[in-house]
């Protein structure tokens, strides 16, 4: 098989424990069935080794198991074998031979009634014989082959931009989604979202339904998107918005990328308690939780107080952020707090605090302009090795006579006479 198959990805190392347990149990059952001589069990076990579901991902073993099961007329095994053989590109002779092998495995799977294998055969035909590909797709779709129907709908919506074709394609996606096809839910939800953006309507019940169906069909993003909407409509403490929480949980089960949100919502009450009890580390963690971009908890107003407490409690990393957040606050003493926190950070060795404060003083941004105080802060950052700040000072000297000229370093030494002569000689030559 090729080193990099088009359809075999690396197993996800961060899948949720619940899913891992499910997959491990399934693989154990398949193993038992395979040991008892059931080729369906060996096919399922081969597929598990192909993707690393409940077992370590191991393609040579997958190949052995799938080939035997495919020879014993297990269509899903032929499909898996085709997935393993399908190369990412087919330029070299070797790749073309692989493509051929993949094609015959898919073909055998298709003949054995695996409709997804038929779609793969059609996909290989796409490049050479579009008419045959279309015909095979129509036939496969009529038999209930979801992937082929989906692809036909895709083609319909791309080849023909008329409103009628678009509506027709979306009707197919909606039907497929209602019958549990995740990708059709994704396609249809995307279209409904675009329609909605055009109408500037609130989230339509139809979009919610499609998102909910796609979420149940295993899509992480659709769960997440719906969860964000439900969360925003909810009231009360985040950890008590049960409907949204259930959706965030589901998003995490489907795709591990979304798990941090669930963790954050569940961690929040304890951190609030800890911060109120004076644990600076908890205040910092709480502030970070409110700062996480894209999180439903993201709120500069909520992050402000805990970040400030963290800085005052000795978490120096918190000071720059606390100061920046304070400057967004309209309270009359906000600037004074920001200044205090910048100074704490800067004195504690956070170069970022000195630089941010220095720039604000020099530019009169957030504080009254005070180059006499600001420039020394920037100059000492430059002197302690921040070459980007030296460059910044150099730029500032062009327009601001008060800016200190940074001390020359050895970045651009003038050429010695011999080197100059040598260069001239080469140019002449």
């Amino acid at each position: 098989f090729p080193t990099s198959s088009a359809l075999v990805e690396r197993a996800d190392p961060d899948e949720s424990p619940a899913r891992r347990e499910r997959e491990e149990a399934a693989a154990r059952a398949d193993r038992t069935a395979c040991d008892e001589g059931k080729s369906s069990g060996c096919a399922a076990l081969g597929l598990a080794y192909l993707t690393g579901a409940g077992v370590p991902q191991n393609r040579p073993l997958a190949e052995v198991l799938l080939r035997e099961a495919c020879d014993a007329d297990e269509g899903t095994a032929c499909m898996g074998l085709g997935q393993l053989y399908l190369p990412r590109v087919a330029f070299s002779e070797e790749d073309k031979a692989m493509l051929e092998q993949a094609g015959s495995a898919f073909d055998r799977g298709c003949r054995l009634g695996v409709l997804d294998a038929c779609e793969r055969v059609a996909a290989i035909l796409d490049g050479t014989d579009e008419v045959a590909a279309d015909a095979l797709r129509r036939d496969t779709c009529a038999k209930g082959g979801t992937a082929s129907c989906r692809r036909l709908a895709d083609d319909l919506s791309m080849r023909d931009e008329s409103a009628a074709a678009q509506t027709e394609a979306q009707r197919v996606f909606a039907r497929l989604c209602r019958s549990g096809d995740r990708e059709s839910c994704v396609s249809h939800a995307r279209w409904l979202t675009q329609q909605q953006e055009r109408d500037e309507d609130s989230r339509s019940p139809e979009l919610r339904e499609i998102q909910s169906l796609g979420c149940r069909a295993g899509d992480g993003y659709l769960c997440h998107d719906l969860a964000m909407a439900v969360f925003a409509e909810g009231s009360g403490p985040p950890e008590q918005r049960v409907e949204a929480l259930a959706l965030f949980d589901r998003a995490c089960d489907n795709e591990s990328d979304f798990c941090s949100i669930r963790t954050a919502i569940h961690a929040r009450p304890l951190l609030v308690q800890g911060c109120e009890a004076g644990r600076a580390q908890d205040c910092y963690a709480l502030g970070e939780l409110y700062q996480a971009p894209g999180s439903p908890l993201e709120s500069a107003a909520d992050a402000r107080a805990p970040m400030g407490k963290a800085c005052e409690g000795g978490i120096i990393e918190a000071c720059t952020i606390a100061a920046e957040l304070a400057l967004q606050d309209s309270a009359p003493d906000a600037a004074a707090r920001a200044e205090r926190w910048y100074r704490t950070g800067c004195a504690g060795g956070q170069a970022g605090s000195c630089i941010a404060f220095g720039r604000r003083l020099v530019d009169g941004d957030g504080f009254p302009r005070d180059p006499g105080q600001g420039y020394p802060l920037l100059a000492s950052a430059c002197a302690s090795g921040r070459t980007d700040i030296c460059d910044e000072l150099e730029t500032r000297t062009a327009t601001d006579p008060e800016a200190p000229v940074p001390v020359a370093d050895n970045s651009y030494l003038p050429d010695d006479p011999e080197a100059l002569e040598e260069r001239q000689r080469r140019i002449n030559e």
């Binding site: 197993a11 077992v55 370590p56 991902q57 191991n58 393609r59 073993l61 052995v64």
Partner: peptide, 18 residues
């Protein structure tokens, strides 16, 4: 890259996937 080695029916199967 991830490497795995699995023994199945007396044969060792090794794989590295990147």
């Amino acid at each position: 890259c991830t490497s795995t080695a699995v023994t199945f029916r007396g044969t060792l199967y090794e794989d590295t996937i990147c």
